[in-house]
């Protein structure tokens, strides 16, 4: 029992680490893809990035299912199993948001006037920072729950900053001479990108509780 238990445990540990690797990689690819769109529009390279994020998302889905199956079939971490499943599922939603946002750019091909490009770039950078910090917080939850609050604090800061940028951007868009349809279209994209940071904050809120439960 002993050796078998430790071998399976090691495999599961690697899968959980791998799952958070997918989140980190997704956020890098997302940032590169949005910046590429802002700079060059819908190019072949953008499609490659989109395909990459699709692959990452489906690999993360496979990992999630495998982790969930092992946690239940081997009755591992009975105290924290529900928390871990909740965490992994919400992180998966965040990755789906990355994918959905790039698909929307690819399908709807919004026209982003030059004067808003910088705002979109700043917003993208900020939401990606929030997701990156969340990945660190998620990893810390498994190894050193005492470090989770420090990472979560940064996630909150980035989310607030992203909200401020998105509000400013939407105000500028609606104060412009653009057609209402264009304004609404651009607003959708601002909100779509900003929702990455909102989701990251939601996951961080959950993580804060899960970490307290582990520490007590």
């Amino acid at each position: 029992m002993g050796l078998n238990l430790f071998r399976r445990t090691k495999q599961l540990e690697q899968q959980i680490d791998g799952f958070f690797d997918k989140l980190s990689e997704s956020s890098v690819v997302y940032r590169l893809a949005v910046r590429l769109y802002l700079r060059e529009g819908l190019t072949e390279e953008f499609q490659e990035r989109l395909e990459r994020i699709n692959t990452l998302e489906s690999e993360a889905d496979d990992l999630r299912r495998s982790i969930e199956k092992q946690l239940y079939s081997d009755t591992l971490i009975p105290d924290s199993r529900g928390d871990v499943l909740g965490l992994i599922e919400t992180v998966d939603q965040l990755m789906s948001q990355f994918e959905g946002s790039l698909w929307a750019l690819s399908i709807e091909k919004p026209n982003i006037p030059d004067e808003y490009v910088n705002g979109f770039r700043k917003l993208t950078n900020m939401v990606v920072k929030a997701a990156d910090e969340l990945a660190l917080s998620g990893r810390a939850f498994f190894r050193s729950p005492y470090d989770v609050p420090a990472h979560n604090h940064k996630v909150m800061l980035y989310e607030k900053e992203a909200d401020a940028i998105s509000t400013k951007l939407k105000t500028e868009i609606f104060a412009s001479d653009l057609e209402l349809a264009e304004k609404l279209h651009l607003r959708d994209f601002v909100e779509q990108i900003d929702s990455v940071a909102d989701l990251a904050e939601d996951v961080a809120d959950r993580l804060a509780i899960y970490a307290i439960k582990r520490i007590v």
Binding site: L5, T9, R143, S144, R214
Partner: peptide, 17 residues
């Protein structure tokens, strides 16, 4: 536990043992 950073899943195996 504050100083030794063991993965939760591995800690679970150690706890079982």
């Amino acid at each position: 536990s504050k100083r030794i950073k063991i993965h939760m899943i591995m800690a679970d195996a150690y706890t079982r043992l």
